[in-house]
Design a protein around this nucleic acid. Structure first.
Length: 262
DNA sequence: ATGGTTGAATGTCAA
């Protein structure tokens, strides 16, 4: 059975519904992990997504953050936040068990700028995620950590690594924090299939014609435990929706797994 | 030098 997961930072689910619905019809992945919904739960546009054939689980807050998981099959379980005793004050983590796979969907903090309180919050969020993974899951089990990581893992993952060196998104401390989580037992599905490709998933609205000029970053990842990585048959970035009318500043990443071989 | 645009909300912040 070929099973495709996608991750998509939509930058406002309500503003992005035309793009999301068109893209779901085109690609029809089994699972879609969404970030930056920017909507309270009571206002989440579940009905049109259900009409498109998906079960919908979400956790949001007013104006900022917010995550959702769309699945063709009913999840066995959905969890919101860390539930680790510290306050779950920002809607950045939703976890679901579906089709025998644990999905960990994160909108990691952006960090604003190196040294800012938000930057410290970002680094701590990565540490907290690693501790939470250790406490709740086994790297031997089929698990996918995906979402907007807000870190370009390596220099190849940013359009101008010299200019961005040490800046937020490329700082060594952030890259170490990302590696620390991955070190639990996760590998980058896109990089596994495309070791040398300079392919971005985010192009800033604020840079003039950034998409046309390909001034971007690869911030959106699909990270799989070993058993899943071994049956990952393909991974791609679908740049097309970034060129549509009223696009998100991010575009979807897809990874396909042969779950029958697990 | 610190620009530029977008979403949510309707101030202005976050990205």
């Amino acid at each position: 059975m070929s099973w495709t997961l996608a991750t998509f930072n939509v930058n406002g689910i309500r503003a992005r519904m035309p793009v999301v619905l068109k893209w779901l019809e085109q690609r029809s992945p089994e699972v879609v992990c969404i970030q930056e919904t920017k909507v309270q739960d009571k206002d989440f546009p579940a009905a049109p997504l259900e009409e498109a054939g998906y079960r919908v689980a979400f956790w949001g807050q007013k104006s900022f953050n917010g995550v959702a998981v769309l699945t063709k099959n009913e999840p066995e379980e959905v969890r919101i936040g860390f539930g680790d005793g510290q306050p779950d004050d920002q809607a950045r983590l939703i976890t679901a068990l579906v089709d025998g796979v644990w999905l960990v969907n994160t909108y990691m903090p952006q960090g604003q700028e190196v040294g800012a309180p938000a930057f410290e919050y970002k680094l701590k969020f990565f540490d907290r995620l690693r501790v939470w993974l250790e406490a709740n899951f086994s790297p031997e089990s089929p698990l996918i950590w995906t979402g907007d990581m807000n870190v370009a893992p390596e220099d190849i993952d940013v359009f101008d690594p010299k200019r961005m060196a040490g800046k937020v998104g490329c700082h060594p401390d952030e890259r170490k924090a990302l590696e620390q989580v991955a070190g639990w037992g996760l590998s980058d599905c896109f990089r596994q299939h495309h070791p040398d490709v300079k392919q971005f998933t985010f192009w800033d609205y604020r840079l003039p014609k950034s998409f046309q000029r390909n001034l971007g970053w690869r911030l959106d990842l699909v990270m799989a435990t070993q058993s899943l990585a071994a049956v990952c048959s393909a991974a791609e970035v679908d740049s097309e929706p970034r060129g549509w009318t009223k696009p998100s500043d991010h575009t979807p990443v897809l990874a396909t797994f042969d779950l029958a071989k697990l």
